[in-house]
Nucleic acid binder design. Structure first.
Ligand SMILES: [Mn+2]
Ligand SMILES: [Mn+2]
Ligand SMILES: [Zn+2]
Ligand SMILES: [Zn+2]
Lengths: 142, 142
DNA sequence: ATTATACATTATAATCATTCTAAACTGTTG
DNA sequence: CAACAGTTTAGAATGATTATAATGTATAAT
């Protein structure tokens, strides 16, 4: 199956019509070897770089959230500035580099299993995520 | 020492002059048995309820951030909607109730120690925080 | 105590990420 | 092709947060 056909399928599975804008978003997001983290602004920049063309912000937000809802993207909360998204949708944790503001994956087997001894009555656990904030190790920091 | 004198001291330690607005903020934040979580909006509401008086948003933001910088408050990132703050400044984790949008503390000893096997070269770990998202356990959910 | 100064408060405007709107456009189906 | 439902888009609206700059106040020097 061609890459394009895959994206069309992915869009259909998400309940979206395969328009040219959405296929372009797919190319930027899913036509890669490795997974990666991005902000909406990153995505806009990549699209304008790769296609020399602008897709409306509304379309980008709508499509990204549709993929998130379907489970093809994951949203990561670091601070209240902006949202980060992740093309790695497996259960995994993150390092957040406070110098560069970049996320780095930390797989489940990079952390010894987390055992929670407390529970909230009447509630089920939806996710357990660890965020490890890191920063430069040297002295010359402000 | 009177409560008031304590707050004045706390403000001085934070490098802030003990004005009447700031002392009121202290009363709302630090004159309690138990620690709690709040948003800026919560704080504004509490102030207007307890003192029947409005303190400017700018003053509230500035004071809260000054306390955070000094280590008297902790900022918690849940989503990009808004910031949550915590009067519990110890190292601890959180349950986030996705139904009520409330935080519940999860102390370090409610979780078996987290052992991170991976590290980022040249970086030191500033914090390791676990966020456990929970939601209603019953079926009648949309 | 008066005064001078630096720091604070405030209302309001600005910013910025995100969402909404409603008009123009396009994929799909018959 | 025609009709319709779904889509894109620019721009406006929203809402949290931050900046501005005029007015007010705590503090320390006189
Ligand atoms: Mn979302
Ligand atoms: Mn802060
Ligand atoms: Zn990731
Ligand atoms: Zn807490």
């Amino acid at each position: 199956m061609s890459k394009n056909a895959k994206f069309v399928e992915k869009l259909r599975e998400t309940g979206l019509r395969p328009t040219k804008q959405r296929v372009k978003i797919c190319k930027v997001l899913f036509d890669r070897e490795k997974t990666f983290h991005f902000t909406i602004n990153d995505l806009v920049k990549r699209i304008s770089e790769e296609f020399n063309e602008k897709i409306s912000l509304a379309t980008i937000y709508n499509t990204v959230h549709a993929f998130e809802k379907k489970g093809y993207l994951k949203e990561i909360s670091i601070n209240s500035d902006k949202s980060y998204f992740d093309t790695n949708t497996s259960v995994h944790h993150h390092f957040y580099d406070e110098d560069t503001h970049k996320l780095i994956d930390c797989n489940e087997n990079d952390i010894e299993s987390i055992n929670i001894k407390k529970n909230i009555t009447g509630k089920k656990i939806n996710s357990v995520e660890v965020l490890i904030r890191v920063a430069s190790d040297n002295q010359n920091q402000n």
